[in-house]
Design a protein around this nucleic acid. Structure first.
Length: 823
RNA sequence: GCGGUGGUGGCGGAAUUGGUAGACGCACCAGCUUGAGGGGCUGGCGGGGGCAACUUCGUGAUGGUUCGAGUCCAUUCCACCGCACCA
């Protein structure tokens, strides 16, 4: 009779059943509320790690809970399958990225299935499948037609190790986000997505995403980097044109005494006088060779070179020497800065070094700055000085006044500037989605006509590891007739950034089998937006910004009806062990396979959910895993011991219960109430599990008492426990549920409701304080009046001792909770 | 420097609206069970004092508001994360 808890057999049994019956397959159903639940899809790197276990365990609790609650839950899974590691592995193993990727997917799919995750596997997709990326090519061409995809020559971030371009978002501390090599600057013709067209809306909607963590929104706002300022033209002294600057400090205009240009500024060389040419060229070369990270560090020595030219301050009419300066960034504002050494620290240091003029135009209140004795720039607000008609007003007002004066006089205009740059998507790599474009000597850049799509990524390619894209060496791919004029032309050999694929995969999940276009508008309309998205914080800017951009573009192309893709975002914490993030290099990884082999998937899931709330870092602890396993064993034994009682039990009759029995039943219904709220409202799975553990402790204590056993109550208590625990440990609960004599599975039963009467307290514990300190506890009937509670408290021996004969000055009563006697 | 998050027992963490600080679990200690190991069961477990009932202190620090503060306010220290020469 007694049977040990053996997860291996149980888990295989239920996983098999779910697979055969396609238990989690969904389609659109107008009769049910929909719930789109999504976890960030993995890169098929080889095998899953603990971060995946945690991410997908969190998701699965939500999915199973929502299904029990009657929602039509879309819960898909797929593979972010293009990318560099596949190519690198292919070079190393003399294999093929397609083979490596397919094998990894095969293996990792098996691992996910062993975790018992409730995905609709019929919707599985891999971004490297033609059935996926072909539609992305169509979307690219639609974006090209609208001017949202374009090509330009620019200085780009170049990773020499990966031999490819990186987006700004993929450069971390001047190094490649993937391989950590130093990133160099290189001038290349590149494809871009015009994300800057959406900068304003992307920013605006960060205030309309209440379901997102504040820090992610803040990071996105900072990344977009909107600022208000002015563009001002400084005429050249020789009368040949002007230099345009961007500034947010137009209030300091009268104090601008020289001009600083980025070394890459297009006017840098044309402004250089012949006598200065060799020195300027040497400076530009030097800056280009400097590592960008070092160059943009705050403490990097400010250096520059005089071009020999002068421009005119449009406010003062004074001549200003034009310098090139290493700290001026070419891709922010206009790449030219009006230098105000008295009120900007960088300009101050620069002016001191090159002995340039200083003019104070903002005086702190009650103080007079003297340029001769200043040791640092004064950057705070103050009173305007040396600024003509603006003298005497506050510098805060002067910002507006001078902006208005510039506009009126035609010398400048108010403008808004963004830090966000367009998204460079060209990658000089093979394992990606080919950019569907042809170059013709006569016709220029020609998009591949719709009838010729898709551009299939050829598989018969050699992986030598020598520089350059393998595609460029494949004549059969490169050489093509121009679709316009028919003459010999060349294909684009760059592929798209893998972040393009992950920018719309969640839309394709709505209709993965659709063959008439990228998206089935009706099905997308039914499912979108994603109700809950769950993933790592590392994508706070990259993926989550690109996906928002794509959703807005696809909305404007008529494919989707929503403004934002993800209504609620949960960023789960990292998995930590021995004080550091789990990683191969630290040698502190716990292999999910070993864990599942030893304890089963249910224990792995339970511990990863119990040890910390989802958004916090999880401190991995092998002994803690033992504790979770122990709990399941204890419950297993308890249910099995009670089976004979359960199987013959009738429904509970509240009228016949003893005091102990009513008390246990109260615990059952209170626990249902708490667990429901913890899962649904707060995603606090750790406290939900703790409450269930308390319930099990209570049931066990009751069952072990030598009381006449109440089979009806035990049945209600244990079966409620199984229902509550099901989202966390589904195999375990299904198995015991079946043993209790039920057929058809737990999800059909639905989430248990609680009986308010059964959960209601019969008497109340009132905390009695004297002067705010705990001095006694009294129990009173639930309907006790304030007067009777006060009388009861004052009559309490301990309370009386503390009152020491003094009469209360004031008595505060919090109904049903607490009484504070002030003396 | 700017922004965000956090600081509670030996450890992970509870305390949802300002109302019993330390739920639940881990580790540890004692006892029972078992041939031993393992496992299981029972009890204890913030610091100081006391045989004990009990008492006193205690949520990074300092001050404040309040009958009452882990929770609110001010100042401050520390840790982690993100951004950072952005004109």
């Amino acid at each position: 009779m007694e049977q040990r808890y053996s997860p291996e057999a149980i888990e295989a049994k239920w996983q098999n059943k779910w697979e055969i019956e396609k238990s989690f397959k969904v389609c659109e159903d107008a009769g049910k509320p929909k719930y789109y639940l999504l976890e960030m899809f993995p890169y098929p790197s080889g095998k899953i790690h603990m971060g995946h276990v945690r991410n997908y365990s969190i998701g699965d609790v939500v999915g199973r809970f929502k299904r029990m609650r009657g929602f039509n839950v879309l819960h898909p899974m797929g593979w972010d399958a293009f990318g560099m590691p596949a190519e690198n592995a292919a070079i190393q193993n003399k294999s093929h990225p397609a083979k490596w990727t397919a094998e990894n997917i095969e293996y990792m799919r098996g691992q996910l299935k062993r975790m018992g995750l409730s995905y609709d596997w019929d919707r599985e997709l891999a971004t490297c499948d033609l059935a996926y990326y072909r539609w992305e090519q169509q979307l690219f061409l639609e974006m090209y037609a609208k001017g949202l995809a374009y090509k330009k020559s620019s200085f780009v971030n170049w990773c020499p190790s990966c031999a490819t371009v990186l987006a700004n978002e993929q450069v971390e501390n001047g190094a490649c986000w993937r391989c950590d090599s130093d990133v160099k600057q290189k001038e290349l013709e590149q494809w871009f997505f015009r994300i800057t067209d959406y900068a304003e809306e992307l920013l605006e909607f960060t205030d309309k995403l209440p379901g997102w963590p504040e820090r992610v929104l803040v990071m996105q706002r900072n990344w977009i980097g909107k600022s208000h300022g002015c563009e001002i033209d400084f005429p050249l002294a020789n009368g040949n044109g002007a230099i345009r600057v961007y500034t947010t400090r137009q209030d300091t205009l009268f104090g601008a005494t020289f001009m600083s240009l980025a070394p890459e500024h297009p006017q840098a060389l044309t402004l250089t006088t012949p006598d200065r040419l060799s020195e300027v060229k040497a400076f530009i070369e030097k800056v280009k060779l400097t590592d960008k990270q070092k160059r943009t560090a705050e403490d990097f020595e400010k250096e520059g070179v005089f071009t020999g030219s002068f421009c005119i301050n449009p406010a003062t009419g004074l001549e200003m020497p034009v310098y090139l300066a290493n700290f001026v960034l070419t891709d922010y504002g206009t790449g030219a800065v009006m230098a105000v050494p008295t009120h900007d620290q960088r300009d101050f240091e620069f002016a001191r070094k090159y002995d340039l003029a200083l003019q104070v135009v903002i005086q702190p209140e009650g103080e007079r700055l003297d340029p001769a004795t200043m040791t640092a720039a004064y950057v705070e607000p103050g009173i305007m000085a040396n600024s003509g008609e603006f003298d005497g007003s506050s510098s805060i007002d002067a910002k507006e006044l001078i902006a208005a004066w510039l506009e009126k006089s035609g010398k400048g205009k108010k403008t808004v500037n963004f830090r966000l740059r367009d998204w460079g998507i060209s990658r000089q790599r093979y394992w990606g989605n080919p950019i569907p474009v042809i170059y013709c000597d006569s016709c220029g850049t020609v998009p591949v006509p719709a009838k010729d799509l898709p551009v299939v990524l050829p598989l018969d390619v050699a992986f030598t590891g020598e520089g350059g894209s393998p595609l460029a060496k494949l004549d059969a791919f490169v050489n093509v007739d121009c679709p316009v004029c028919g003459k010999a032309a060349r294909r684009e050999t760059d592929t798209m950034d893998t972040f393009v694929q992950s920018s719309w995969y969640f839309l394709r999940y709505c209709c993965p089998d659709f063959t008439a276009g990228p998206l089935d508008r009706d099905r997308v309309r039914y499912w979108m937006s994603v109700d809950q998205y769950i993933g790592g914080i590392e994508h706070a800017v990259l993926h989550l910004l690109y996906a928002r951009f794509f959703t807005k573009v696809l909305r404007d192309l008529g494919y989707v009806a929503v403004d934002e893709p993800f209504a609620n975002l949960l960023t789960q914490g990292m998995v930590i062990k021995d004080g550091a993030k789990m990683s191969k290099s630290k040698g502190n990884v716990v292999d999910p396979n070993g864990l599942i082999n030893k304890y089963g998937a249910d224990t792995a899931r339970l511990f990863s959910l119990f040890a910390a709330p989802p958004e916090k870092d999880l401190d991995w602890n092998d002994q803690g895993v033992e504790g979770s396993f122990r709990f399941l064993n204890r419950l297993w034994k308890l249910v099995n011991d009670c089976l004979p009682l359960i199987q013959t039990a009738r429904p509970v009759d509240p009228e016949t219960l003893s005091d102990e029995a009513r008390s246990l039943r109260r615990l059952v219904h209170k626990t249902i109430r708490k667990v429901s709220a913890d899962i649904d409202e707060r995603f606090h799975f750790n406290t939900a599990i703790a409450a269930i553990m308390e319930l099990v402790n209570g049931i066990q204590a009751f069952a072990s008492k030598k009381l006449p056993q109440n089979s009806a109550l035990l049945r209600e208590a244990l079966e409620s426990t199984l229902l509550l625990l099901y989202p966390f440990v589904p195999h375990f609960c299904e198995e015991l549920w079946e043993k209790c004599g039920h057929q058809g599975g737990i999800e059909l039963v639905g989430w248990p409701g609680y009986d308010p009467d059964a959960a209601a307290d019969e008497e109340l514990l009132i905390i009695v304080q004297v002067n705010g300190k705990l001095r006694g506890r009294i129990t009173v009937p639930t309907d006790a009046s304030e007067e009777s509670v006060k009388a009861g408290a004052l009559a309490d021996d301990k309370v009386m001792a503390y009152l020491d004969g003094k009469s209360p000055r004031k008595i505060i009563y919090v109904p049903g909770k607490l009484l504070n006697i002030v003396v």
